[in-house]
Every structure is written in C-alpha cells, then in structure tokens.
Design a protein around this nucleic acid. Sequence first.
DNA 1: GCCAACGTTGGC
DNA 2: GCCAACGTTGGC
Length: 135
Amino acid sequence: MNYWLMKSEPDAFSYDDLVRKGKAEWDGVRNHAAQGHMRAMRRGDLSIFYHSNIGVEAVGIMEIVEEAAPDSTDDSGKWIAVHVAPRERLAKSVTLKAMKADSALSNMVMLRQSRLSVAPLTKAEFDHIVAMSKA
DNA sequence: GCCAACGTTGGC
DNA sequence: GCCAACGTTGGC
C-alpha cells in the first residue's frame, strides 16, 4: 500500500465537504507530476488531506476508493482523476509550520516542492504526521 | 497584496 | 530545442 498527500483549498473543497459527500472525485488536477502520482494510486491507498491557503495544515485521512479514470471536468480527454472517501479526521490538525520544523519530515516531497498538489509520502512520513496529530 | 517557484507558451 | 515572457500556485 502507498501513501499520499493531496491539497485542496478549503473554500473550494474542504475535508468537511468530503465527509458530507461520503465519496468524491478528486478532479481538476492539471499538472503532469501530480497526474503521474494519481495514476500510481491503488484502491486502499491512504492519503493525507491538506488544506492549502486557508489553514495551511493537514486535517484528515482519506482512502483511494477508485483508481485513475477520465476526469469528468475535462473535455480534452487528457486528464484523469481518482475517487476518494474520508477515513478519519485528525484529532489535531498538523500545520505546515510544524511539518517544516520536524527533522523526521525533512525529505517530504511536498515540503521540497511546495506547489505540487498531489505528492507521495513514505509510510514513515505518513505515520509520523498521524502521530503528530495525536501529540 | 507580494513574491518565489515553477509550468506553459510561443518566437526564433 | 532554447529561452524569454507570462500565468498560476501557494506561503507569508
């Protein structure tokens, strides 16, 4: 199983919105690196849900429930999307500041390339963020 | 609102 | 195929 981190601006689509819907298409990703990561996702993989711009923090865990398929918001046929479902909200959100300050996360792809909206996490990084949310 | 990082576009 | 110009993302 693989682990991921996916960003959304909460005023467009928040973790609460995902909980309310129960399942959602993660659409609108128009970056080749991020698309590559989404193509590599498998059913059952887990992802951190991260709020960008507002909050700037990891807020929940979600599960990949459907693998890459054409993005319904794309007319060109070039882009794919996956479907996700909420797993659990983090007891305490983990801020970008806290992640940057933690040496255990110094190689995290999202910290090294802040504009990437879909990024892989190692199992150790994923577990570490979850542990931080419980500290 | 500003700016750094980075992706895309288009001229050559 | 290079690179300047420009647009977008996202943190602050």
